[in-house]
Design a protein around this nucleic acid. Structure first.
Lengths: 233, 233
DNA sequence: GAACAACAATAAGTCTGACTTTTTATGGTT
DNA sequence: AACCATAAAAAGTCAGACTTATTGTTGTTC
């Protein structure tokens, strides 16, 4: 599933990465490549490759005569999709979900405003289709179908914005929405008001009304933030 | 300077990474580890570690019997600080600068709004100090001094927001501001209106007026976007 | 006793060569 | 034309020897 389960190297990463992001090794902890290689029963070459990747994520720092030291959380590359996945799967899942939702609330309204100006005909069509799909699955515990269209909707918005940085947040948003559906919140059926807002955003984008698209998307964001506050005040 | 100039491995990365992000190898291009190792005059182990890191950035994909293929730009981890630095140093610097500025325009206003609620006394002090520093250096070609305080100002805002995802954009903003000062734009002296806005943002944050801080920061962002549009319409 | 210089220990860094495994292309058979 | 066996290619893995930078220690000197 995860992009990094290929090969021994991927397996090591898939174990050590989550352990570090979960805080099992507090900042400043020192690991030694040789010892890790023994523990995971892999050769030093494999272990070194794994450490190099962790280093490129700024999770650890490797120094001669010292070893591999774990860096403080404030230095991690928290935008790395792999790091995000690890953290979402681990102990500070709530905090991660929270900070990602705040990020969404900042980015998506602006993205929607841009989408209204730059979306292609196909993107408008896909957007409307997704919104209608959400409506169709909004009643009667059809959570999976709803999620599918919800993800598609936000993906289109982010891509249609024409900004590559926004577009690359599509996976993150997908992860957040999936998390919300499968774990924490999500009572019986989605909030009808939110569903309506999506439909209206699709309309605004289709009509090229950037300001309205932005304002409506901001309302959706406020709703998402409130959902979080209700759960963990 | 760049975090990755340590060791042979770092040197290889520092050459191959920029080459790829600059588009020297079009998507789908196939490289072979052994050939690269020869070209860079390093051992296969070193080359493999470099490739692993590039793979973790989603710049390339390594497959058996095929080789190391360059991935399309749309799949790159564009939030990786290293990738951002490489792209800012390369050919599509303008586009990168553009998309980063748009990202700033979305994030910073929200961050300022949160900062008004969560900033500590020290952060407020540092913010005011930075704003005054900008004023003091705003006339008479004191660009370096101005830049220093400008970077500090935006860093504090992002950190004081209390959101780790925002905080980690501090380096990116620093890079954008430095780029603006040293390369492209920036006529004789900074726009006086922008300077004033920074002072007023500091005020708003100090007074805990989130809404005003957000609105004012959005004005700053609009100015930054206009600067770009003026330069490349 | 403090400052400093020489030294030794340590863990990462590097290289080499042999071997394994997966995947793709080839070519022959029905 | 479809299919299976085979071969080739490149990444993946391993083991061991060697190099180098860094740090802590020891010993010398004032």
């Amino acid at each position: 599933m995860s992009t990094s389960d290929r090969g021994l190297h991927g397996h090591v990463l898939g174990t050590l990465g989550p352990a570090i992001t979960a805080g099992e090794y507090p900042p400043g902890s020192v690991l030694r490549t040789d010892e890790l290689a023994q523990r995971f029963e892999v050769s030093r070459s494999v272990m070194r490759e794994a450490v190099r990747v962790l280093e490129s994520m700024h999770l650890v720092e490797s120094r001669r005569r010292v070893g591999v030291t774990v860096r403080p959380k404030a230095e991690w590359n928290v935008y790395d999709p792999q790091v995000i996945r690890w953290r979402l799967a681990g102990a500070d899942r709530p905090q991660q979900l929270r900070s990602l939702t705040v990020l969404r609330s900042a980015v998506e309204p602006v993205a929607a405003g841009l989408a209204a100006r730059f979306a292609t005909a196909e993107q408008c069509a896909k957007l409307t289709e997704s919104a209608l799909g959400m409506v169709a699955n909004s009643r009667g515990h059809r959570l999976e179908g709803y999620l599918l269209h919800d993800v598609a909707f936000h993906r289109v918005i982010l891509e249609a914005s024409g900004n590559e940085m926004f577009a690359r947040l599509g996976d993150v948003v997908a992860e957040v929405l999936a998390g919300r559906t499968h774990h924490e919140i999500m009572f019986d059926d989605p909030d009808p008001a939110a569903v309506t807002l999506h439909v209206r955003v699709a309309e605004a984008v289709r009509e090229g009304d950037g300001e309205r698209a932005e304002r409506l998307t901001r309302e959706i964001a406020v709703g998402a933030l409130q959902e979080l506050d209700v759960l963990a005040p």
